[in-house]
Amino acid sequence: MSLLDFARGPAIHWALIILVAGTIWRLLGVLVLTRGADLSRPRDAFGNFKGYRTVFSRAWPSGEFTTATRYQTGMAYVFHIATLIVVIGIVPHIEFITGLTGASWPGLPNAAGVAFGIIALASLLALILRRIAKPAVYCSNWGDYFAWFVMAAPLVTGLMAFAHIGPRYETMLAIHILSVALLFAWFPFGKLMHSFWFIFSRAQSGVAYAHKGVRI
């Protein structure tokens, strides 16, 4: 079995199994816990529902915090959007998803894919450099760096595979797929899960504060 066969076969296969099982495990393991009840009377009878808007409103920090957060928020948006475009926009990825789900859609030209890949990588670098430069602000633990690594690795290896830098294409493709397998397998266990938690976390706080008539 070649490395590519391993990557495209058992590696990605098990990674997906871990991804699905682990993600559901962690989500349910938290969400099925008891719900605390706030028995106090809400400020407005139906005001608590307004709290759900925090899920959306927190997408951008309030003007009050602009100075402190604009670099990071901006970079984080660039990273998330560019990565999303790369993940769902370039043809090999669409083919991968098609192979998995059957769904298909038109892809981007390679030049655009490469451009977004580079933008994503650059923003990721910008974020980690800031994290390293300001240890007092970030209180980073190894999980932060590892999450960064598993996110950066597919971007780097994908770009390398495309540009035919380093090992032969099929080896590089195998390494790329393996790096994605690592990302999938790590996803349920680290902070990457914030892609789910943010909804619940924001909603909870939004509702808790809306209960008191405070819009956050």
């Binding site: 719900r35 915090f65 990071q72 970030y138 976390s201």
Partner: peptide, 15 residues
């Protein structure tokens, strides 16, 4: 669950 979600959510973004 509320506390658990909050504890799970932190990404140490430093903001």
């Amino acid at each position: 669950a509320d506390e658990a979600v909050w504890l799970e959510s932190c990404i140490r973004c430093g903001q």
